[in-house]
C-alpha cells in the first residue's frame, strides 16, 4: 500500500472500527500491510499518531478519542447525547437500581460468589444476575475453593466498554465514592463535621 500519512490511516481505521482497537491489533495490521523496507519506526509513528489524534479531538469536535477496554475508540461527545438520542430514536438501555447495585458490588469485589453478593444486597439476586450474564456484563470467572465450589463472578470487557473504562482500576475507589455522596449525618460529632467545612481550598481568586 501507499505510504499514506500514518496518522490518516490510524484515524480512518478508528473511524470505521466497531469495537475499541487495541494498540497491538492496530499496529500489527498496519505493519503487515506496509512494505518491509518501510516498517522501520512504524510502531512509534502509530503511537505518535494516536497521541496526536487524541489531542486533536480533545476540543472543538463532536467526537472524542477515548481509551476504553484496553483499546482506542472514537465516541461522540457526551454533551451531544440529546441530539444523538433523538437522531437514533434510541430507546436507551435503562438499568434498574438493583442491576446497578449488583454490578457495582461485582465490579469492586470481584471475584465473588452469588451468596456474597446477596449478603451485601440482602436479597436474592438470581434474576438480576441472569440479566447481567445474558447482557455479557458479568461472567463466571471460576469456582471458589470452598465446600460446594460455588461459582465466582467478575465483570467483562463489555462492562468496561459500556461504562467507558479503560480498565477496572479506573473506577473511583469506594472511599472516594463514600466521600462524594453527601450524607445526612446524625448529630454524632458536630466538632468533626464542622471542622471539615471550615476552609475549602483557596481557589484562584485573582
Amino acid at each position: 500500500m501507499e505510504t499514506t500519512d500514518t496518522r490518516k490511516i490510524v484515524e480512518a481505521l478508528l473511524f470505521i472500527a466497531q469495537k475499541p482497537l487495541t494498540f497491538p491489533s492496530l499496529a500489527s495490521f498496519i505493519e503487515r500491510n506496509t512494505p518491509a523496507d518501510r516498517r522501520e519506526g512504524l510502531r512509534e509513528k502509530i503511537r505518535q499518531a494516536l497521541l496526536e489524534l487524541e489531542e486533536q479531538y480533545r476540543e472543538g469536535h463532536g467526537i472524542v478519542l477515548v481509551h476504553v477496554a484496553g483499546g482506542y475508540q472514537l465516541r461522540t461527545d457526551h454533551a451531544l447525547a440529546p441530539w444523538l438520542q433523538k437522531f437514533l430514536a434510541a430507546k436507551p438501555e435503562r438499568f434498574s437500581r438493583s442491576a446497578l447495585e449488583t454490578l457495582s458490588i461485582i465490579a469492586y469485589k470481584q471475584p465473588l460468589t452469588r451468596a456474597e453478593i446477596e449478603a451485601i444486597r440482602g436479597v436474592d439476586c438470581t434474576a438480576v444476575m441472569g440479566k447481567l450474564l445474558e447482557k455479557g456484563l458479568v461472567r463466571i470467572t471460576g469456582k471458589k475453593e470452598v465446600p460446594g465450589r460455588p461459582l465466582l463472578y467478575g465483570t467483562t470487557k463489555e462492562f468496561l466498554e459500556l461504562f467507558g473504562l479503560n480498565e477496572i482500576g479506573d473506577l473511583p475507589t469506594l472511599r472516594q465514592i463514600d466521600e462524594l455522596v453527601p450524607k445526612d449525618e446524625p448529630e454524632v460529632d458536630p466538632a468533626g463535621t464542622a471542622a471539615e467545612e471550615v476552609s475549602p481550598p483557596p481557589q484562584t481568586l485573582s
Partner: peptide
Amino acid sequence: HQLFQETGQHLGAFALLGRDVFAR
C-alpha cells in the same frame, strides 16, 4: 449496603455507551 447503593447510583451516572455516548 449503603455504600453499594451509592456506588450503584454513581455507576448509573457514568457516560454509558449507547445512552450518553455513541460509537460507530
